[in-house]
Amino acid sequence: MSSEAPQTPAIEDPQIGLKLIPEQASEYAQQVDFLYYALLGISGLLMGILAALVVVFAVRYRRSLRRERGELIAERSGRRLEIGFALLLCLSFIGLFYWGSQLYLHLYSATDADVTIDAVGKQWMWKFQHPDGTREINTLHLPVGETVALRITSQDVIHSLSLPAFRLKRDAVPGMYTRAQFTPTRAGTYRLFCAEYCGTDHARMRGKVVVLERADYQQWLAGKVDVPDRAEAGAQLFQSLGCGACHKADGSGLAPALQGVFGSRVKLADGSEVVADEAYIRDSIVEPQAQLVAGYQPVMPSFSGQVSEEEILQLISYIQSLGQSREADEQ
């Protein structure tokens, strides 16, 4: 069980008042709101028809009127009414389904982003890590207009990064990377929540997203004490852990050279091929033998437990910085 009771940082809620429809802080948020209004309209219409029918029938056919009963709907036309109604519903549902899944794919399928931010959920705080190494807890500063890709994982239980203003939510699952990307279009302070129940202080695991104009963002960056950027931190780790001993740049070591390996197709010992993306590199660090590269001996020790999630992400950024291979550029 969780050993010591981890302390939870203080909460800084953005004071933005009750917004029944959260601000549309990105163009995607507007699209989701159109879908919401469309569904509200359809539901309102159907509820209206239902309520009207029930009230009219209740008033016109109440028993106390003692009126002579009219003819009931014939079996055949009744069946046609049912089937017609069902088909009408199916058609509108297929439309709504298509609309919803298009937006869903736009949000989650990986596209190249201007800046990749790592979000690591930990019992009861969110830790963000910018490419330049800046780290924040429960607060995320972003520039307007740049496409932000979130690389989300968790160190302990399942959390869920929820940004209502961007209509975005993604679970942080331990042992797995989940992705989402969005493009802030309006400066401002927005809410940030943990949506998946994760223990005692689940309710305190929240904060704010601060979207700044480009100039203010640079100023905010400058204000930060200069901390080695993520790739440099990765390089330092690469040396301190002694990876360089086998992964020699010229490939003469016991292990494959890592120059330009990110994004390339790697031939494995069991004959299959896999793209060396973040998940492959992470697995190779934590579980080296599972996807052994063809032509090499399974001698790499596992580092699982010795390097934290942030450090693995730093190593990945370092390997990325060793040059993207040609295939990755075409994707």
């Binding site: 159907l46 709504l96 389904f97 869903y104």
Partner: peptide, 24 residues
């Protein structure tokens, strides 16, 4: 009345993009 409201809001949650915003 109540079941129809419940059912219709189920359709909101079935639409993928809305469920991303509304889940949990």
């Amino acid at each position: 009345e109540l079941f129809t409201v419940g059912g219709l809001t189920g359709i909101f949650l079935a639409a993928l993009a809305l469920d991303v915003h509304l889940h949990d």
